[in-house]
Design a protein around this nucleic acid. Structure first.
Lengths: 214, 214
DNA sequence: TCCTCTAGTGAACGTATGTTCTATGCTTCA
DNA sequence: TGAAGCATAGAACATACGTTCACTAGAGGA
């Protein structure tokens, strides 16, 4: 769709929509635009909106009041993702796992993070660490661990693992070695854990850690 | 305005409005909310919107279709702040300090963070940690430390300190004890460092740590 | 000259949508 | 047990608002 040169009136309309949105939080009606831009008839507004839509400056939802959406800054569609913090992770306790789809209700808090950090549309969730049990992974009390449900785990991935026998959640790097698994702490001075693969339940893959002080 | 506890229904309504806005660029109608939140009557939606407005979560323009404006993230004017990562911090090396005003040129990379984490207009900068010298503060190789230039340092603040004699940068909690200073590692199993106050140069106050894996 | 295209006008139409009214359970408190 | 609030139902009302239509006027173009 060719981006043609806009008439003076069309530019005024675009500017007015932008201002109105800024001020009110919702788009103007055809009649708002009419009076705001000193246009004599609603049909003229409709006419120009139609053109602006064809040129790609906005999108209209038919039959919908105020159904105008500006497309100019479209890539800023979802700069922030609200990451739900589902609960706590601590040694000797089961880890909350996002129940399919709606984790409504279990969310105690949430953190907003840019998509540049966690990706877009990913089912990332957070867990707040309680206690010092993860300290060998350089994760302290109060830190937030960012997790992605683990479809596949590759060598060296940092994962939240549930040790069934020990009844303990832990956070380590994952290495499959034959029929056993080596769980390697991030802190190189600490010793790794070895266990059978079937003693392990991978809860999620760690994609980040956030610690906020003060 | 008292921020009362929201009912489950009210939280769903707020969430729905947010989603709808995100997706369409304009707010939902009362009937959109009704069907979207599985509410039986438009009057119930109206009733709850009225309450949400009284609590300060949104503003409604009377007689105006889709006249709903979310107020929660009103300061969302500039949700993302670009935090410059000025360089590296490692033991035995001086720490880069933001030269007044323009640190243009020294920036090797940058991270975008929401204002909810680092505040707005604050002169926050980042340093990437090289090596394991900060491991007693639960900070590993590759982590990013978020710093604010330290106007005043209070008891217990986490700071980046430059030890002049030792020629070493370290990251510890700061406690003034008479004429000497105790630098306490975040890891409680480690021993504190004691030094004279004049051997110390506070480079900045740590406000956060970010670790991104993968 | 007639024809076509763009731009504008004013009114009317139909429905999308905010609002209101009455009635009904459900707690809570005395 | 009854009064007082809260939350909900369903319907009806009034109007805000997108859309359409018939008509006018200038600007090329053949």
């Amino acid at each position: 769709m060719p981006r043609e040169k806009l008439s003076d009136k069309q530019q005024r309309i675009l500017a007015y929509i932008r201002e109105f949105l800024e001020e009110h939080g919702y788009p103007p009606t055809v009649r708002d635009i009419q009076s705001g831009c000193d246009i004599s008839s609603t049909s003229v507004v409709d006419y120009n909106l139609r053109l602006l839509q064809r040129y790609g400056y906005l999108r209209r939802s038919p039959e919908v009041s105020r159904g105008i959406e500006l497309l100019a800054g479209r890539e800023r569609a979802r700069p922030l993702v609200t990451v739900p913090v589902l609960g706590y992770i601590a040694a000797g306790q089961p880890v909350p796992v996002p129940s399919d789809e709606s984790w409504a209700g279990q969310v105690t808090e949430s953190v907003e993070l840019p998509t540049s950090l966690v990706g877009q549309g990913e089912r990332v969730y957070g867990l707040r660490v309680r206690g010092l049990s993860m300290i060998d992974a350089l994760i302290g009390d109060g830190d937030i661990v960012l997790l992605r449900p683990a479809a596949e785990v590759r060598q060296g991935d940092m994962v939240v693992a549930w040790l069934k026998e020990e009844k303990e959640a832990t956070l380590k790097r994952f290495f499959r070695e034959g029929d056993r698994v080596r769980l390697q702490p991030a802190n190189t001075q600490m010793e790794p854990i070895y266990t059978k693969a079937r003693n392990l339940e991978i809860q999620g893959k760690v994609i980040g850690v956030i610690r906020l002080l003060q």
